[in-house]
Design a protein around this nucleic acid. Structure first.
Lengths: 219, 219
DNA sequence: TGAATAGTGTCTTTAAGACACTATTCA
DNA sequence: TGAATAGTGTCTTAAAGACACTATTCA
């Protein structure tokens, strides 16, 4: 290698999903600095070689700084690159996506949630990143426990059912869903714990594993 | 951003699959320069911001230079990063994997093929890259036309059958495989073209699409 | 008791896998 | 004609989806 060789800029960008009002939403933040200062964009920033152990840690740092909490589920999405995607020069952005239960978001002022179907115009190639993140979420939702990470620690079967429908973007039969989820064993009932309300109380469940669990077949 | 900020080194590494002697193999090349000069490794190199349009193009350039041909199927695998994976400093490697029909390899002297199950010790974090690439190949083989890209342009049903078995690493029923492949419509018969040999001639097929086609269900 | 949500049983359709069978070639 | 590969038909089992049913609560 020639040590004089010009290197690309290296950054991370994050697509942060949440569910608000029964709709799939993304968390956007106003950019503090140029380029595009004041514009809504995906939370992102440069990799800091002095403090980041790898790009995943850089993404966690960005999320913590920009929206104020740690991400319960974070996964590398894709790496975008080229001379034109950022006006500052040839750049590489390692994109991540994360799932955030809405309950975690209440304390955060900096961040705003926008429905995934009606986002404002985004700078850089952020629309492309969002499109790919939505596709990945929809795809993984059909064969893994992924959407459950959008819920708080305890939830009912019907809350889980709805979150799967919203993640996938399609209706799922109630009975079949129940059978399949229970046979996959991704959740466990909390003994004698029920959500009480206006009607018949509902059994509370929690995830059986803190890690993503893939299914044998589609949900 | 602070323009003075130290940036990571940016490189690409490629896991190149082929089938030789009915076994899944990887193409390795001896490193020409330090570090690890003379050692077998995945073909890789730095991104050249003056000539590469993006990291995928950098990967294509590396493949062309190191093994002498263009890759028929190339896909981004994962981005590896950190201060320790390369002795030259904090680095980001965008890893790609590609499928190469053995017929393309004959002219190449620089490259050697090694069975995926019995690779020599590899420098950097290349073993990790290989492990992840094998996992991706096995996984995609179960629900897409991916393994067909390991074959030359024309092939018989049984050649396709064997290449799926070798990619997935499991036995597949001959009749079921035939039914599913034909109902997926990923291949088309070449009218009146047969592979003749010692026994009953076999219908020749080709891929219906030059792009990867995902299946509705597992093969 | 009726409205609303929670939870279950069962039937039909469709796919997956096993396996046995027929077909065509060459030596 | 027998060995080897090519290609097909059918039966059994299991899963997916639809849908109707029962259960429990509150107003």
């Amino acid at each position: 290698m020639e040590p004089s060789m010009r290197q690309p800029l290296v950054m991370v960008d994050t697509a942060l999903f949440t569910i608000r009002d029964e709709r799939l939403c993304l968390i956007l933040a106003r950019r503090q600095e140029p380029p595009f200062a004041g514009v809504l964009a995906l939370p992102g920033g440069f990799v800091h070689v002095e403090e980041d152990a790898d790009t995943a840690m850089a993404a966690r740092r960005v999320i913590r700084h920009k929206v104020g909490f740690d991400a319960p589920y974070l996964e590398q999405l894709f790496t975008f690159s080229g001379p034109a995607r950022d006006p500052r020069g040839w750049s590489v952005s390692v994109a991540y996506y994360a799932l955030i239960p809405l309950s975690l978001l209440d304390q955060s002022q900096v961040a705003e949630t926008w429905p995934a179907e009606a986002l404002p115009p985004l700078p850089f190639d952020h629309s492309q990143i969002v499109a790919q993140a939505v596709e990945r979420l929809r795809s993984k939702a059909t064969y893994s426990s992924l959407p459950a990470f959008l819920l708080p620690g305890e939830f009912t079967m019907n809350e889980l059912h709805r979150i799967y429908e919203q993640s996938i973007g399609a209706r799922l039969d109630k009975a079949s869903f129940r059978h399949k989820i229970l046979e996959q064993g991704i959740i466990e009932a909390l003994p004698d714990r029920f959500r009480v309300g206006a009607h018949r109380p509902a059994q509370l469940y929690r995830l059986a594993s803190t890690a993503l669990t893939p299914f044998e077949r589609k949900i």
